[in-house]
């Protein structure tokens, strides 16, 4: 474990921000691109995880443990969000027999 953590010491903070920004953008792209509600939900999870990674990197960079505690809270929040969201998707499927989000355009007005 010690040798593993020594290898990270040359990585600049900017590269973590780049990685998180790219993965967040991929998540945004997935939300815009797909019509399956479950895949859209998974893209949201991807965005949440990229933010988690960035918070951890900042926490290690600053030497402050509060960032990692925030990540823990975000994970608890994501679990709650997934439970409620998947229940809503199952209910939508029961009512419309599809999880295509375009079926839901009747909610517009």
């Amino acid at each position: 474990m010690e040798s593993l953590t020594h290898t990270i010491q040359a990585v600049p903070l900017n590269h973590y921000i780049f990685l998180s920004a790219i993965i967040f953008s991929i998540g945004v792209m997935g939300v815009l691109l797909r019509r399956n509600a479950i895949v859209i939900f998974m893209s949201v999870e991807l965005m949440l995880n990229s933010v988690n990674l960035l918070l951890t990197a900042f926490s290690v960079y600053r030497g402050d443990a509060a960032g990692q505690v925030f990540v823990f809270f975000i994970m608890a929040l994501a679990a709650a969000e997934v439970a409620v969201g998947l229940a809503i998707i199952v209910m939508i499927y029961r009512n419309t027999n599809s999880i295509d989000i375009n079926v839901l355009n009747r909610l517009k007005w």
Binding site: E2, T5, I8, Q9, A10, V11, P12, L13, Y16, T56, A57, S59, V60, Y61, G63, A65, Q68
Partner: peptide, 11 residues
Amino acid sequence: DPVVLKNPDLG
């Protein structure tokens, strides 16, 4: 600056 782990038992 590079990400340096100042306190090894942080996480």
